[in-house]
Amino acid sequence: MKHTETETRLSGQSPPEVPQVDITLTVNGISHSLQVDTRVTLLDALRDHLGLTGAKKGCDQGACGACTVMVDGRRVVSCLALAAQCQGREITTIEGLSTDGELHPMQAAFARHDAFQCGYCTPGQIISAVCLIEEGRAETEEDIREFMSGNLCRCGAYPNIRAAIRDVKAAVHDVKGES
């Protein structure tokens, strides 16, 4: 038989036992062991259990991209992954992009191009943008638009976000000796 939480509370019964899991998460190269409610998403584990509040909760439904992080080098929405599912995976958040206090080139480019207003979508945008270049999808303006479409920006900073991406993309070409 099924009860919703509300039904159970209203009926005065003791709340159903909430299953827990012991998990180990590797985030930005550091391994963390924790016990969480099975319902905890990767996003909630990062924010509420590990204090990594860079990834943001926008919609909590996979629709806005504010919670984007990398799992095994690929961008995902952390609000639709269970923390328990991510054991043994390499998780990278916005906090893990900078090295020795030096900003990642994409972070620096976002700052240079003023690619944000309120900043709420920014950590997700930056992680997505880093992956976009890795995926080889920053070749054309059209591709940048299409393959960044999973990251919404309520402030409409899109033109500056694309400018930042183009900048980093051009720099990558310079380093590789391409034109």
């Binding site: 996979g62 991209g65 961008r75 992954a81 995926e135 479409s149 999973g150």
Partner: peptide, 9 residues
């Protein structure tokens, strides 16, 4: 379909 993030999952 969907977004790159969702398609990776």
């Amino acid at each position: 379909g969907a977004s790159t993030q969702l398609r990776n999952m």
